[in-house]
Amino acid sequence: MNSRRKPAEVLAESRRQDSRAKRQRVLATVDQMLAQGDPVTFAAVARTARVSNWLVYADGVREHIEKARGQQASRPAQERLTRATTSSSSIRTDLELARAEIQALRQERDQLKGVVQRSLGQQLEQVASKDLVTRIDELTRHKHELTARLNQVQGENSELQRRLRESEDDVAAVRSNLRRMIRSGVQAEVS
């Protein structure tokens, strides 16, 4: 076997290694741009990774860039804008507005809570105690029926589990007998 490689093989291997290194650099650049929140475009990736525009459109690389672009597109536009343009005074203003809105919502919630409580109180007063006793009796009877059904199903389940264990034991015995029969049949043929 010839251990020396031809110059063309050496050159081809060198090109393959260079291509793999560039592709890995492009993928790492895309991940870094995603992590930093930089907009991922084909041109920006090629420029940042210092590779040709052709490479970023190549199979295996293009899909990774398109996936990253999709992830960025799914982020709210407000999140992308606030990262770049938010100042401390605007944050304070937003905080004060949010606090005022929270306070207004709490007041509205308390008012609605009071309305609901009054409405429920009126409904309870309208329901006669006789209706409540009848409903309680119905629910108690239904509970007893469900409990009896549960006990019956649990008993059936126990019986089925017992029968399953018996069947498994029978299958194991049949297998054991079959093995013995096969062994004795093989030994009889050998003799």
Rank of each mutant, 00 (worst) to 15 (best):
L112E: 03
L146S: 12
G114W: 15
L120T: 09
V133R: 01
L150S: 05
E145K: 11
R118Q: 15
A148M: 03
Q152M: 08
D131M: 02
N151V: 00
Q122I: 07
A148T: 12
L146T: 09
L132W: 01
I136R: 11
H142Q: 13
L120H: 05
G155R: 02
T140R: 14
V116S: 14
R141C: 10
G155C: 01
Q152F: 11
S129W: 05
A148I: 02
E125C: 06
K143G: 09
L124P: 01
Q111A: 11
Q154H: 03
K143V: 03
V115K: 07
Q111R: 09
D110W: 11
Q117N: 13
Q154Y: 07
K113L: 14
L146R: 04
D131Y: 01
I136E: 05
D110V: 12
L112T: 06
D137L: 09
H142C: 05
K130N: 01
G114D: 15
L139M: 09
A148C: 05
R149N: 09
V115L: 15
V153H: 04
G114S: 15
L124N: 09
E138T: 00
Q126V: 07
L132S: 01
L146P: 00
T140D: 13
S129A: 03
T140L: 13
K143H: 13
K130D: 04
V127E: 01
R149A: 14
V116G: 10
T140W: 13
L139Q: 07
E145M: 08
D110M: 09
H144S: 07
H144M: 08
L150V: 02
Q154S: 04
Q123Y: 11
I136Q: 06
T134F: 08
T147N: 10
Q117V: 15
D131S: 01
Q126P: 00
L132Q: 03
E145V: 05
R135S: 03
Q122D: 07
D110G: 12
K113M: 12
V153F: 08
D131V: 00
Q152S: 12
Q111L: 05
T140M: 10
T134P: 00
A148F: 03
V153R: 09
K130P: 00
V127R: 01
L120K: 08
Q123A: 13
V115S: 14
K113P: 01
E145C: 05
E145I: 02
Q117G: 12
D131I: 01
Q111N: 04
A128G: 04
T147W: 07
L139S: 02
Q117C: 14
L146A: 14
D137W: 10
R141F: 15
S119G: 13
L112Q: 06
E125S: 06
T147M: 07
L112H: 06
K130Q: 05
V127F: 02
R135A: 05
A128Q: 02
L112K: 08
G114C: 13
R141D: 13
R141M: 12
V115N: 07
N151A: 06
E138K: 01
L139R: 09
L139F: 08
I136N: 05
L112D: 04
A128T: 08
Q126H: 09
L139T: 01
Q152V: 08
Q111V: 01
K113W: 15
G121E: 08
G155V: 00
K143D: 09
E125L: 10
N151F: 06
